[in-house]
Computed example of a mutant assay.
Amino acid sequence: MNKVVKGAVTAATATGIALCSPTNYVIAQAPTQTILPVSAGLEKVSGAKVELLSNPILRSNQKAEESVTAFAVQDLAQQKIEALAENRSERVKEEKIQEEKLRKKRLQEKKKRQEAKRRREIKACCGVSAGMEDCRILERIVEAEAGGENFTGKVLVANVVLNRVKNKEFPSTIRGVVFAHRGSRYQFSPISDGRYYTVKVSKHTKRAVRAALNGKNPSKGALYFMERASASRSNVSWFDRALTRLFRYGCHEFFK
């Protein structure tokens, strides 16, 4: 007959009594005393079957160990997940950087192609090689010199610059012509007095400059222009004496 006393197993057998101690060992008494390790289930002691009940302390320790193991496994899994997420984040970030570099490179190549195409078009139309920056310079000087003129008046001023670019006596670029100077005296007064740097180019001026670059040229080859009312006496005298007057349009007189 089996009897449980304080968490230990007492098994009555024909030959003696077997006890399950709190230390997870079975102490067999009568006819011999032998210390045997306890295993789950049934064990034979002195030829008799003894039913062993799990020790509560051991069961608690085992559950604690299982919990610790589970937490350790969970923590390791979480670390792996975080590491994978971090690696993925770094890869995504690097991919975005590379994509942005590629986008900028393609944009630069596109601008270069557009620049080359525009230069060819301008060259074919007006005989001057001009890129985007040249166009902006021409727009600013036309706005500064003829901002109050009508469309044709602005086209005429733009063509004076273009005519100079094509003339061997002047610089061969729009920038060179606009910023030409002797000492501190520039060919165009808006460069000297700073108006060139402060004007806001209107859409009207941009259309006029584009028309000039596309070949519209009613200037009759003019290389100079003057606003007589605002010019100094010495300048007026030089224009009248040294140059050939071609025509007057708006507030400007054109010479070559």
Rank of each mutant, 00 (worst) to 15 (best):
G221I: 08
R113W: 10
N163H: 06
D134Q: 02
S172P: 03
I174F: 04
A146G: 14
N214D: 14
R207G: 07
M226Q: 07
R228Q: 14
L213Y: 01
G147W: 05
I174A: 05
V201C: 00
T152C: 06
L156F: 08
T173I: 10
I137Q: 01
M226G: 05
I191C: 08
S232F: 00
A144D: 10
S237K: 13
R164L: 05
T173Q: 04
Y224W: 12
F188V: 12
G153L: 04
K220W: 03
V155T: 07
N159G: 05
R118A: 04
C126E: 03
N214F: 11
C126K: 03
F179Q: 07
G127R: 09
T205S: 02
L156E: 00
T173D: 07
K200E: 10
E169M: 04
E145V: 06
T205D: 02
N163T: 04
V177H: 12
K168F: 07
N167Q: 12
T173N: 08
S192P: 07
N214I: 05
G221Y: 11
E139A: 08
A208C: 09
T152K: 13
A222I: 06
R210I: 05
G194N: 10
F170C: 13
V209M: 08
I122A: 04
C135H: 00
I191E: 10
L162H: 08
S202P: 01
S129Q: 10
G153D: 04
N159I: 02
T198R: 08
P171E: 11
I141Y: 01
L162M: 06
E143Y: 01
E133P: 00
N217F: 15
S202H: 00
F188M: 11
R182Q: 13
V177L: 13
V209I: 07
N159H: 08
V160S: 02
R210K: 13
G127H: 14
G215W: 12
L223V: 12
M226N: 06
G147N: 09
N167A: 13
M132P: 07
K206C: 11
E149R: 06
A208K: 00
V160E: 01
G183T: 03
K200F: 03
E133Y: 10
R185M: 03
A211K: 12
G127V: 14
S234G: 05
K168A: 13
V209C: 08
E121I: 15
A144Q: 05
N167I: 11
I141R: 03
I174P: 00
S189I: 14
Q187F: 14
A116D: 15
K117C: 08
D240K: 14
V142A: 08
K117S: 15
S232M: 02
A212S: 14
